[in-house]
Design a protein around this nucleic acid. Structure first.
Ligand SMILES: [Mn+2]
Ligand SMILES: [Mn+2]
Ligand SMILES: [Zn+2]
Ligand SMILES: [Zn+2]
Lengths: 124, 124
DNA sequence: TACCTATTGATAACAATTATCATTAACGGT
DNA sequence: ACCGTTAATGATAATTGTTATCAATAGGTA
């Protein structure tokens, strides 16, 4: 078991995600964080986003053919516009609670659910 | 508005999806359908899967970094093993019904929800 | 301060999907 | 049954998002 080191790159990536309410992909995080840390590499962004997601610090969503990241890990949901791709947060914690409670599958123990609504946003 | 033609390739792809209970990606559908239709192209499989999904005939799920297809469009859920990637059908229609009912968002009208549980399967 | 090695930056490699285009075939009209 | 139109196809190039590689760097500990 290797111990993880605290790097400036990882801190800046997490800090950025916690300051926004959008759901950027790795490329977008890279472009934003690079303003503060001009030397950071895209590979480092990918590595840290994956690390943070695997330890549960952030969410890794699969939307529109790519991974989107979210620092809000509290049971909320997402709505995706099938026309323009816009992603909106839905705060109905009861849905997540209900889904996890209902799940009494044969041997399948789950602690989290991705709930993604598909439809048209108000602009489309 | 162009009218769609009924092709043997599209019929075979849909027929195959309706005969299985798994959630194959385009490549897997291609390999299976090619047994019946040796000359079919991978591009044709992609085109038809996307067409069938956009018209709501089949589901297009985003799991483990790729699109998976499902001919069962009735409101069920999916559980994905975070260790081996296995996908299991969960039949708890009440979850989908509850989620759609709870969704009373500003202008966002949705008719379908993708509900994906993440956890460990019985083998892992 | 010196050592160990986790992490990084740069870039190559990879995998999934989409775009392109000449050819084929579905189907409504004759 | 034969056309003519054009949606759809097969083959393959191009694109995109992500991961792998590896020498160099820097975090943590003594
Ligand atoms: Mn969110
Ligand atoms: Mn299914
Ligand atoms: Zn929209
Ligand atoms: Zn498993």
């Amino acid at each position: 078991m290797q111990k993880t080191r605290t790097t400036n790159q990882r801190l800046k990536i997490l800090e950025h995600l916690r300051n926004i309410r959008t759901h950027p992909n790795a490329e977008a995080v890279f472009k934003s964080v690079r303003k503060d840390l001009p030397v950071i590499s895209l590979a480092t962004v990918y590595r840290n986003l994956n690390m943070l997601a695997s330890q549960g610090t952030i969410l890794k969503l699969e939307i529109n053919g790519e991974y989107k990241f979210d620092a809000n890990t509290c049971g909320h949901q997402h709505a995706v516009c099938t026309n323009c791709g816009k992603i909106i947060d839905i705060f109905e914690p009861a849905i997540t609670t209900y889904a996890l409670k209902k799940l009494t599958l044969n041997g399948f123990k789950s602690g989290c659910v991705d709930i993604i609504f598909k439809g048209r946003c108000d602009k489309c």
